[in-house]
């Protein structure tokens, strides 16, 4: 999940709602889409800005761990595929910032909040990519977990977000397949490649499980978001679905999932598994993950180093406008 711990408002009972709020909730319950210029509760708008903004930030920060291997990709084809994938992630960021802008917040405002640490991005991107199999694992596990969350969000109540998700999901499923394809090559490769694949699995398994956010019993913000259909499934539901989908894929690759308690449960018809170490999750969210400083530092540096470039383009646009106006004036 690219949006974790998104702060939402407390749920209101029907008696506490204004007539407008009741009408709004009824539209959502009927499955109608809410569009930018329509009335919406302030809490709905704020929660969506936080969620879409966090998702957008995750896409652009997410360029970094994969970008880390573009110049070292082992073949020209792998390099081209990885470039295309990272380009897609930047494109997703663009759709999502645009969706957020329909709610009355600018991209620059959102970026300021990211750079100052007031908005977060997914915890997963604070883990390093240390060997080439990590690029496979990111596609397979990280994009796989993201898709698990994003497929239901195609049905989310806010129109622009839902439409962005439809486009994004198409590309993400392609990413997941290419990630799995790397893993298949690695898992069927030399002993060194197999070791890299297992090493990637060992490091990415629990961080991937953390992507869905804390356990439902500790997830304080879900109820209102679910009522508004900003969130469709609970964290634990999605995590379980992800584990059930991924375990057979790992077995097919011949990789061991680093969980002694992983066991098929006949009664539930699902895999039992260990919870991630939530203290690690909260530490990463608080800024203490292995790469928090590098990731945010890289984004801030890109923004600061690029200031002259953005200013230059703005200055030129103003000059060009002035020249056009002067030419028009002279012609009249």
């Amino acid at each position: 999940m690219y949006a974790q711990l998104v702060k939402s408002e407390g749920t209101k009972s029907r008696e506490e709602m204004s007539p407008e709020e009741i009408a709004f909730q009824e539209r959502i319950d009927r499955g109608e889409k809410i569009e930018p210029k329509e009335w919406m509760p302030e809490g709905y708008r704020k929660t969506l800005i936080r969620q879409i903004g966090q998702h957008a930030h995750s896409e652009i920060v997410g360029q970094l761990p994969e970008g880390n291997w573009i110049t070292r990709a082992p073949t020209l084809e792998r390099k081209a595929i990885l470039l295309a994938k990272v380009q897609d992630e930047a494109g997703h960021g663009l759709y999502l910032y645009s969706a957020a802008e329909t709610l009355g917040v600018s991209r620059d405002d959102l970026l300021d909040k990211l750079h100052s640490g007031n908005m977060k991005y997914s915890s997963i991107f604070n883990y390093p990519t240390l060997n080439w199999a990590d690029i496979g694992a990111v596609g397979w596990l990280v994009d796989g977990a993201a898709i698990m969350n994003q497929v239901p969000l195609q049905r989310t109540s806010y129109g622009p977000y839902s439409r962005a998700m439809i486009r994004i999901c198409k590309e993400e499923s392609f990413h997941q397949r290419q990630g799995y394809d790397i893993m298949m090559k690695m898992a069927a490769g030399t002993p060194e490649q197999k070791a890299m694949a297992q090493d990637a699995m060992n490091r990415f398994w629990y961080p991937a499980l953390m992507m869905f956010g804390p356990s439902d019993k500790d997830s304080v913000h879900s109820a209102q978001s679910m009522q508004w259909k900003i969130k469709i499934n609970t964290n634990d539901e999605l995590r379980q679905k992800f584990v059930d989908q991924t375990v057979p894929q790992a077995h097919y690759l011949g990789l061991t999932i680093p969980d002694e308690n992983l066991k098929w449960n006949e009664e539930t018809g699902a895999w039992d598994f260990s919870e991630p170490d939530w203290s690690e999750f909260f530490a990463v969210i608080a800024g203490n993950g292995p790469c928090n400083e590098e990731r945010l530092g890289a984004r801030v540096k890109a923004w600061e180093d690029g200031e002259w470039f953005r200013d230059g383009l703005m200055a030129h646009a103003k000059k060009a406008d002035a020249r056009r106006a002067a030419a028009k004036h002279a012609a009249e």
Partner: peptide, 25 residues
């Protein structure tokens, strides 16, 4: 491609990745 994720504005990240992709192709 070394710019990937580090350029001054998101549109440039996209454009440069696209250009690198053309050149590698």
């Amino acid at each position: 491609s070394e710019w990937c994720g580090h350029s001054p504005v998101l549109e440039e990240d996209i454009a440069l990745a696209n250009q690198a992709l053309d050149l590698i192709g």
